[in-house]
Design a protein around this nucleic acid. Structure first.
Lengths: 246, 246
DNA sequence: CCGACTTGGTGTCAAGGTGACGAGAAGCTA
DNA sequence: TAGCTTCTCGTCACCTTGACACCAAGTCGG
């Protein structure tokens, strides 16, 4: 167990980013078109190999995020999803990737910030439906990222991560509806969201577009939702999943 | 992006196991005493470097599990927790570890199966309280594993993973009480557990030890809990956590 | 044999949460 | 001003939850 590390099989370590946003009433993800082989011309998650041997995983993810979006990681939510390391997942050799999940509002991001690759938003539903457009096993990573994001909305206050700094309850509700692919009653959602302690802070100001002006809120100090905002169970799934361990 | 992989910084990849069980009315974890430097004599999670360059992460975790406990991975729950890759976490050099979480009933495991290292159960509370006994950053891994396990009990039927094939509702309740560190009303727990569809299947048989004989159940087909079994919020935490991103 | 004790299971009840929905408030447009 | 839209509050029936009474069915000790 304490032999020289150099005698151990070494792998290349990459960090991939699943950056989600709500845009045009759809859940979208930032993807890049691969300029080189393998999977040239196909879509992939932004990411790359860790830079130096001394770079922390979280630091690497934050760096990639900054390169792709020009945004500092502190400004939005960035958390590790999981690691993927099937032997055949990269034809060039053994590459283990640690995927990170980022949630952000619909900002005009300076795409292709430090990099020449073209990055663009793609609707999650579309890319998942046509998985052949995706490189590597990134279809799985995206599916996992969406699932994680859906769960996060139930138990945490991260729905606001998709919203601008000030937002109305309706905007927040539409985030939930889009991420969960499920319609919610505006009145009940309003009641629940405002009743959770520390979730939303009223700004006193109001916005208007169309109907009655809506009160503007900003994110409150709470990070976990008590009680959780539960989505009604999709009757599609009777509960027996496919085993979780992947 | 498509340069030769060999020019990329390579890291050593390890797999660690957080194997939890309920034993002697305590949540316990399987730990090994390190025989070599670094951290010689201290406790560590069982695990090791991936064997061949072609070994899948899940396969490696299952192999380690079999080596440590003699149990096949199909028999119990094994899922990836997350990856840990801080540069300084291993003094020998850059080691990234992928930690797996395993839940198992209190079995007499043939400890130190294929390996000479001494493995033993340690109460989670004790090792977390005295973190200096632990090697590397394993205190963090264990804390994360426990947290994950606690959450799993709320939303999934994995509480039964701590129980033998046939068990009583009381045994299951005690699992919940121990993992959650929280007493539960036996009658309300009974009502909830039996009312969740597909959670428990009555065997028709009963056991007796002490009081009135209890009905024996086996695990049902459901994997997710609808509705979830929520633990009452610990009033200790007002909801503002420390930022999740690590 | 009998009462005390232990544990398991059902029932009840009040309080609070949830979904479904009515209805008014407050803006815009024609 | 009428009609439309969206926001917000309120109501009501139903369900879940927690607290707890109470009975059931075994063991234990004398």
């Amino acid at each position: 167990m304490a032999q020289n590390l150099k005698q151990r099989p070494q792998v290349a370590l990459a960090v991939d980013l699943a950056i989600l946003t709500v845009r045009d009433s759809k859940l979208q993800i930032l993807l890049v078109e691969r300029a080189n082989e393998p999977y040239r011309g196909q879509l992939a998650l932004p990411g790359g190999f860790i830079d130096t041997a001394d770079e922390d995983l979280d630091t690497a993810a934050a760096r990639e995020l900054a390169e792709e979006t020009g945004l500092a990681a502190e400004r939005l939510h960035l958390e590790q999803l999981r690691a993927y390391g099937s032997p055949g997942r990269d034809p060039r050799g053994r590459v283990v990737t640690v995927c990170y999940l980022a949630l952000m509002p619909d900002l005009p991001i300076p795409v292709a910030g430090g990099d020449a690759r073209a990055a663009r938003w793609e609707p999650v539903d579309a890319v998942l439906a046509d998985g052949d457009r995706l490189a590597f096993d990134h279809r799985v990573l995206i599916a996992d990222a969406v699932e994680r994001a859906q769960g996060k909305l139930e138990n945490t206050t991260l729905g606001v991560a998709f919203c601008p700094p000030e937002f109305t309850i309706s905007e927040l509700r539409r985030v939930y509806e889009i991420v969960w692919r499920q319609e919610l009653d505006p009145r009940n959602f309003h009641r629940k969201a405002t009743s959770v302690d520390g979730f939303l802070e009223p700004t006193g100001r109001r916005t208007t577009r169309g109907g009655r002006p809506a009160a503007l809120y900003r994110r409150g100090p709470a990070r976990v939702l008590h009680p959780p905002l539960l989505r009604g169970h999709n009757h599609s799934d009777p509960g027996q999943d496919k085993g979780d361990g992947r």
